[in-house]
Nucleic acid binder design. Sequence first.
RNA 1: GCGCCUGUAGCUCAGUCGGAUAGAGCAACCGCCUUCUAAGCGGUAGGCCGCAGGUUCGAUUCCUGCCAGGCGCGCCA
Length: 558
Amino acid sequence: MSGEQSNLSIQDEISAAILQVLHDAHSQLNCDIPTSLTLERPKNRDHGDYATSIALALSKPSGIAPRKIAEIIVAGLQVRNDIAALEIAGPGFVNITLDKSSQGGVIANILTAGKSFGYGNKLNGIAINLEFISANPTGPLHLGHTRWAAVGDALGRVLSAAGAKVTREFYINDRGVQMDKFGASLQSAALGEPRPEDGYHGAYIDDLSKEIVASNPAVLKLSGEEQTFAFRDIGYKLQLAQQQSVLDKFGTRFDVWFSEKSLYDNGFFMHCQEVLKSKGHVFEDGGAIWLRTTDFGDDKDRVMVKSDGSMAYFASDSAYYISKRERGFEICIYMLGADHHGYTGRLKALAACNGDDPEYNVEILIGQMVKIMEGGEEVKLSKRAGTIITLEELVEKVGVDAARYTLIRYPVDTPMVMDVDILRSRTNENPVYYVQYAHARICAVLRNATDIGIKYGADLIHPELLVHERERELIGALGEFPRVVAGAAELREPHRVARYVEELAGVYHRFYADCRVLPLGDETPSELHSARATLCSATAQVIANGLDLLGVSAPEKM
RNA sequence: GCGCCUGUAGCUCAGUCGGAUAGAGCAACCGCCUUCUAAGCGGUAGGCCGCAGGUUCGAUUCCUGCCAGGCGCGCCA
């Protein structure tokens, strides 16, 4: 935690000042004053460094002409010495141009905070359970899982950066008939028999069965069901380990690997059923035990215990949710594939049945489908047929950074198309290279600066020298980062960080083209060189921090 | 039939409480390396923001209806 001073950016100070001015004019305005206000960054540079349209918004409730309100704001801000110019434009926009020297504060903040620049306290202390991927341990992770592997991990990082206490959790579906089918498939593969029709058919089953036999030759001596279970259990361990290893290489980290099976240990499920029963939403019908989720808007009630006494999948869902709540998580985030969006209703209703607030305690993010193109054609995905693109294959094709970055830079509710050919080619058709290149470029400049004895650092900012339009743009963009991170966390949209970092890279490239950083030839090193090099190092820091939140590397050389 | 998501430039897509002339990358065309990484920069061209209404000072954004596409709607997991 840094002190109050450094947490308050220049735009926060000014927006607070504007709110204060409006409050002071309350008797005149005679309407509700908003509690917070975000300064906009106008696209058009002629409109200053920041702008606000609050005067237009307050015009109606106060019954006062917008330009009149703008005048009040401008009058109230005149006294500030960190503002160079104030202008009322159009129907009542207030355009603010910062004083040169006040812009330097951003650079100082970045250099002081270093790796933690951008981190904030918007979600301070909130215990969040972030569940993602949650694949069956019966095969490799495929493309749908991969989207969440990247986005879920990035969201975890972003939420943590906003101060939340995040636990990343992978729910292992290690129970039920699909596990037995898995065991039977492995068994038949090992024995050279035809696979069960409803079993798993991918080529990996052959490999896995060989691995099982090689490491545990004794399985061949077993027979019948005993042998099926042995294949199932050993295969499960190996397959899970394979998933874990792939995710580890992908840079996706989990705090908890939660076994579905464990929900039935030590009577935990019975406990959950009692909890729900005590809240009055459990009933029996046709020999089955149900949860009356229709009490809270679900389409139909859900079976927990089937009439034959076996557990329905929803039994596990219920127990798992209660486990999360009993472990102290305030917010449970579920990241589900589009083919599971029908879950929203029942999960929200489940929370309500437990006496929780479904709007607050449960959040469900639905990730739309990912298509993959190669050679101009869509690669069809079919797990049963075994022609799947796995996470591992994708990484082999395009590398971790390109795969992660591409998956993260789109909002998850957009269906997306990944073109392997483009991602494979190392050109800036792939935005990740554009961003990484900016970072590497800065590092090269700074290496050269050091070589020729140009110093840079927090005591050499010289904001009064950084007056070039490109410099001001760059400083302004750097100052946006904390706000972007906070917004990404609050809206659960890590792609905002990616888009920001692309924007920042672009601003830097333009700065680089127009503003020579290091002395030319035998030119004498000046304070401007140091100031620009310092600005470069601040930029590198922010790009690195942004990429780090995405789990993408920031190379020093390319 | 019901529900969720999507529809913005030739392509892939951004666009947070409604804001000023709707953006980026790629593809096309024209320029820029005798000195910091050209994986870069500048410029030109490219748009009925799916369609139709509504709300208002103002709508790509909010509301309603429609059209098109994707995905779901088990005592499966």
